[in-house]
Design a protein around this nucleic acid. Sequence first.
DNA 1: CATTTCCTTACGTGATTCCGTAAAAAACAA
DNA 2: TTGTTTTTTACGGAATCACGTAAGGAAATG
Lengths: 222, 222
Amino acid sequence: MFKKVLVAEDLDSISIAVIQVLEDLNIPTIHHVKYCDDGLLKVKKALVENEPYDLVISDLSFKTDHRKTQLNNGEDLIKAINDVQPQLKKIVFSIEDKSYRIKSLFNDFGINAYVSKGRNSMEELRKAIEGTFRNEEKILSSDLSFSFNDKALIEIESYDISILQLLSQGYILEHISNEFKATCITPNGTSSIEKRINKLKIYFKANNNVHLIAIAKDFGLV
Amino acid sequence: MFKKVLVAEDLDSISIAVIQVLEDLNIPTIHHVKYCDDGLLKVKKALVENEPYDLVISDLSFKTDHRKTQLNNGEDLIKAINDVQPQLKKIVFSIEDKSYRIKSLFNDFGINAYVSKGRNSMEELRKAIEGTFRNEEKILSSDLSFSFNDKALIEIESYDISILQLLSQGYILEHISNEFKATCITPNGTSSIEKRINKLKIYFKANNNVHLIAIAKDFGLV
DNA sequence: CATTTCCTTACGTGATTCCGTAAAAAACAA
DNA sequence: TTGTTTTTTACGGAATCACGTAAGGAAATG
């Protein structure tokens, strides 16, 4: 079983239970951080001391408070870890259940397992840890309804996300066009962007831009 | 100290820690439910058996799954409890940190304390339980930055919420006007609604309706 | 009762979205 | 190169939003 595990979780109410699971699995070294920044520091330190972690379990969303942080969420932390220790096994334990975001965790961030916080998640977490140790691939907790085969949300790409984000910040078409030209994103004509928004509206069955952004917010796309 | 406490929390990872706090306080009877419906049943049953609860600790958001439920969130549960046992002490323990929603819990639902899930929330929860037992009023965990004095979000009333909700559902001004006329909500002229939206845009510093809905979503108003 | 004030509604304009068509540009194949 | 297809961009008219002004009516005041 794993020898040295790092838990990144801000809520004390949850970290208590996660650590309990790790103790039940007889993991000898268990460390816990409440801020992503501290997590990266610990990983780096363990590396230079030649006692690297072999598993990290991280939440996605971290509360902001008085303390200034470089890394603000689990994605940031995982990205940073991938820079210094890419082969480190990663399990995400979060409330998030939007297929788009979870798929991106596997495909873009190379995580090994995703466990959604739910009514029976401690058991799921234990299974995910064991599966990850046995090098199983793309472990999903069983209460998630989607599979990796449905292409539905895969078609929404980062270009669409950019449009939705700028829209949600109050940009009008013309400004989005300018922004894209400034950052060399193509296509960037107002007409092309307009057409893309129209596709999104059809896809999400939205009546207008306002409706579209409301739906995008619900899907966690922005 | 309290004799009989009910915990309504769907996430097993959290309920474990909450129950631990209650055990540390030597509460003799601790019950735990993962669904709001079960919570109401337990409260009713305890009443008819003449052994009522004297405290309930509830989350706000509950995940939906295969099971069909009457009560879908903490607000529903508290409302239902207020119908059968209004004097029952109520503590809400949730991740929610939007002042608008928390204020409404105290003012409209008569809860006794609100503890926000955070990095040091078990200690806050313990203090809230003790304070509630001593009949202190309107207990807020200390990491919440707002106070009851700032009138900022109090001015947003249900009329505004209705408008925001219809907007987020893709309604155009004219349809909102019709909807208000149909349900006898005044004012209902397109112009009045327009003006009210304009106030909201100024208040939230939004450039347009799309921006406004994005902000409202972030604030948890819709 | 007259006056004032506030709230609601109506109306007009310019800006932006919405939605179709078509030209221009780019990518591709022969 | 030439022709074909696809993508991108441009343009135009109708609908809707955005925002100011003003008319009408209810409540408050004296």
